[in-house]
Every structure is written in C-alpha cells, then in structure tokens.
C-alpha cells in the first residue's frame, strides 16, 4: 500500500473507533443514570459526539492531564454525558464514577480538579455563554493562549442573557471563544420552530458579528474538520458552531419527540433501551 493509502486507512480506523466510542458512552450513560434514577437521556445523546470530539481529540491537556483549554457546559442538563467520557479518558475509574453518580455522591469532587465542563455548572440556562465570554476576556488580558469552548443548547438561546453575551463577545473581539450550539431543534414541550422560530439562526449570529460554521453534530469527520482549525483561525471574531443534531440520537424511538427532555429509563426499561442502542457512522 502507498504511504497515502496507509494514512487514509489509519484515519478511517481512527474515525471508526470514535463512532464505537459513541456507542459505548451512550451505553455507560444509561447504566450510570438509570441507577441514579434521574437524568436527561435525550439531550445527552444529542451532544455525545460533540463532547467526545472536544474532550478526546480537540482540547489540549498538559502533562498532568489538566486542561489547557477551558470548557463551559452551559446546557447543564447535558452534564451527565461528561461522566462516562472522563471515565473513558482515565481521569476517573469506573468505581469512582459509580461512587460519584449516586444519591449522596460528591458533586463538588469533579470541580475540585477543574476538569473540563466543570468550570461552572450550567443548568440555569443562559449564564454559561456570558461566563465563557468573561473567561475568554480575562485570558486575553492575561495573555494566556487558551481557547474557551462553551456548549449551549439551542432552546437555551431563548434566554435574553445569551444575546447580551453574544453582543459582548463580538464587541470585545473574543476570537478565543468558541460557542457550540447543540441544534437539536427541540425544547421541552415542542420543536423550536413551532414555539418561537430561531431560523434563520446562523444569520442571527452573523448579524451579531460572529463567525459561523454549520455542521452535522453527529459526524466526527465534520466535527474534527471544524474544531481542530479553531487554533489557527485568522479572524478577530468569536466563532459559533451550529451543530445540527438529533435529540435522543442512538435510540430510534426516543428521537425527535417532544416531552422526552427529562426522560431517563430505569430498571427493565433501561435494559431494553441499551438493547435498542444503534451504531451509526462508518
């Protein structure tokens, strides 16, 4: 095989391994949070590939495995998926993760180490992007070469504070800020375009003076292509990546259904959901 051919096979195998990781992370998420008896499965599954791509490929860590780049998880109801990923990265053992994700488990433990996603706990929607902007500004003032990533939900963007932060970040030329919007088109009760339409969503970010990329948020090929380039972006604008996703991706009968936002199967339902988990990608 030629050298180029060998490289292509290697790249193919790497991408394939990430899709396999997606399957395992979803499986582990169900195990962890069905035991807890509470969780947000559908939103965790719409962001799975985004988080894996960020944590396991894109973000930079130092030799002690502490993050160099920052990550603010604004859509805090998506925090569940961070646990299996940190476990997969070897930051926590299976036993430690099991111990954390239970009633009475130590929520603050994960923050003590400032692992990505826990700069701040999201959940109160619309706060994370402003914090990420403040952090990006502070890092620039400190002359620290770090990127701040922030993951927001699309329905989170109904919060007025998101738009306050959008204007602020663009005005202050925070080109070290990358906001990824998990565009799954669903809030809790209905589709965004039925409730109060966002489209043309990308135009709205552009009009606030952001660079915008629109990608498939379940495609590692597109995520890697876009995200690895953020370190050498020749622009003074902050970047918004609108990641087109499916709420509930990986479990056919939970996909794209309103009122499944806080759904978490337990007991037999959890076992059945794991059986129904689908592989996708290469």
């Amino acid at each position: 095989m030629t050298e180029a051919g060998t490289r292509a096979v290697k790249a193919f195998d790497e991408i394939k391994s990430y899709y396999e990781k997606s399957f395992k992370m979803r499986q582990r998420f169900i195990e962890l949070f069905s035991n807890l008896g509470f969780g947000h499965l559908t939103t965790a599954f719409s962001e799975t590939e985004i988080l894996i791509a960020l944590f396991e490929k894109v973000m930079r860590f130092d030799e002690d495995r502490k993050p160099i780049d920052k990550f603010v998880l604004s859509k805090g109801h998506g925090a569940g998926m961070v646990y299996p990923i940190l476990e997969d990265m070897g930051i926590f053992s299976k036993e430690e993760t099991d111990e954390m994700v239970q009633i009475g488990g130590d929520l603050a433990k994960i923050r003590e180490f400032v692992y990505p996603g826990f700069e701040f706990y999201g959940g109160s929607l619309g706060i994370g992007i402003g914090m990420a902007a403040g952090l990006a500004l502070g890092l620039k003032q400190n002359r620290e070469d770090r990127i701040v990533f922030c993951l927001c939900g699309d329905a989170e963007c109904y919060e007025g504070s998101v738009w306050e932060a959008m204007l602020f970040a663009a005005h202050n030329r925070l080109n070290n800020l990358v906001v990824i919007v998990d565009r799954n088109y669903l809030g809790v009760s209905d589709f965004t375009e039925n409730m109060c339409a966002f489209e043309p969503f990308a135009d709205k970010w552009k009009s606030c003076n952001w660079d915008v990329r629109e990608i498939n948020g379940h495609s590692y090929e597109e995520l890697f292509d876009t995200l690895v380039n953020v370190y050498k972006r020749p622009s003074s604008k902050p970047l918004c990546i609108i990641a087109d996703t499916v709420k509930g991706k990986g479990v056919g009968d939970l996909c794209n259904i309103p009122l499944r936002h806080g759904y978490m199967p337990t007991g037999e339902n959890a076992d059945n959901t794991i059986k129904k988990l689908e592989r996708f990608g290469i």
Binding site: K70, A133, G134, S161, F168
Partner: peptide
C-alpha cells in the same frame, strides 16, 4: 445588561 455583567464577572474571576 445586568445578567451578563454578573456572568462576565464570573468568567473574569475564573481567569
């Protein structure tokens, strides 16, 4: 933008 002021302040504190 009072809400953003507190959020931005939070980020600056983290820096």
């Amino acid at each position: 933008a009072e809400q953003n002021a507190i959020a931005v302040a939070g980020g600056l504190c983290l820096a």
